[in-house]
Simulated scan of single mutants.
Amino acid sequence: MIPLALLVGADADVDSIRIAFEEGSLTTLKIVIGAILLGVALETRPSDFLAAAKRPGSIAIGVVAQFLVLPALTFVLTLLLDVRGSVALGMILVACCPPGNVSNILTHRARGDVALSVSMTAVGNVLAIVAMPLNVAFWGSLHPTGKELLEDISLDAVDMLLEIGTVIGIPFVVGIAIATKWPRFAERAGKVVGPVAFLALGAVIVVGVAGNWSIFVNYIGIVLVAVFLHDALALLLGYGIARATGLPERSRKAMTFEVGIRNSGLGLVLVFAFFDGLGGMALVAAWWGIWDIIAGLAVAQWWGMRAGRRTPEPVA
């Protein structure tokens, strides 16, 4: 099989480059990701977890798709594309990231089951604290070229768990506490914190790309096709597994975005915190964050237009 790097005309070794990212910028990125998770939590209520408990089948389908099937299919895709080790690790890392509240927005825009989407986002972020480091360590150690990079880095799943717990867990707990004690304030704050945090994330990515423009231009071709196929795979997996298990159309839409939309900003934090800005990983995470929203908006807009005046289906 012809390596993807040659298909796109990039023969340089992306595994050997490191993306420059100052300590202050990394701290800013962590704060921004924490703010995004705070925004998710401010719009989450204890009733969302109760709602999830009343729909265990749908939630279980989403959990299996996100934390078991998607990483496994991603691993297979990296082998089929024959990507470089760092690109493979970047794809695996993104696949293991939890969803964000962008999935809720897209589900609403597509006229899908927003209640299911919100419940799955809440459950997914809690489970990701433990599942994400285990998944990255497991699938990365199995990859024929990625495992060598992991050995050089000496990745510690426990350290990653603590980092994810700090970035996700603390803001999530704080946000839930505020939402429980001051629900009206949380509702108003959530409408501001989430969007502002995403704009800030976009600004951090733009500044990072500008500071490494020559690397971005020279190597972006290596990840364009991989990210396109990977993102399409994630969205199709969400829809396919929902349809195969008999979920109604509105729930299929929610499942599509919960599985297909990943919080790659968290992935970027981990790339710089644990992988020393490894080139292919950083490029995958950064470009995924951009392309994922473009593709998701396109799908949501298409679904929203098709929905028209259809009679809403009952939820599963």
Rank of each mutant, 00 (worst) to 15 (best):
L6A: 08
M255N: 12
M305V: 11
G194Y: 11
P3G: 10
G238P: 04
V259F: 03
L199K: 04
A72E: 05
S141E: 13
T44G: 15
H230V: 00
G90Y: 06
I59R: 01
G124T: 12
I164G: 07
I241N: 03
L155K: 01
L81R: 01
F274D: 10
N125F: 05
E23P: 10
M132K: 01
S141I: 11
R45H: 15
R262C: 06
V40N: 05
N101A: 12
S141D: 14
L224P: 02
M120I: 12
G296W: 03
V136E: 05
S47Y: 02
K181W: 13
Q66G: 06
A179Q: 05
S119I: 10
F138S: 11
A115W: 03
M160R: 01
V69Q: 02
W139C: 06
R45L: 11
T121K: 01
M160W: 02
A300E: 06
D156M: 05
F21G: 06
A295H: 09
S141W: 14
E43T: 12
P183R: 08
G277C: 11
I215A: 03
V14E: 06
I290S: 14
L70G: 07
D276R: 12
V227H: 00
V102C: 00
P195Q: 04
D276C: 01
A122T: 12
G169C: 14
N212C: 04
D159R: 14
G146T: 05
L50S: 15
W182P: 03
G265E: 12
G124F: 12
L268M: 15
F198T: 01
R55M: 14
I153M: 12
V206K: 06
G175Q: 07
I33P: 00
P144S: 15
G289N: 15
I36G: 04
I33N: 10
W182I: 01
R310V: 10
G39N: 12
G277Q: 10
D276P: 01
V192Y: 07
V126K: 00
A88N: 00
P71C: 11
A115D: 13
L142A: 15
K147E: 14
S251A: 11
V32W: 15
A20C: 06
P144D: 12
V193M: 04
G140W: 15
G34D: 11
T311P: 00
T44K: 12
A273P: 07
L247S: 09
G211Q: 10
V87A: 07
D113M: 01
Y239M: 03
V130N: 02
L266S: 09
M132F: 04
T121A: 09
Q301A: 15
F272M: 09
G57Y: 11
S119L: 08
W213M: 13
T107I: 07
D13P: 09
A285I: 13
A72P: 07
I168E: 01
I241E: 00
A186R: 07
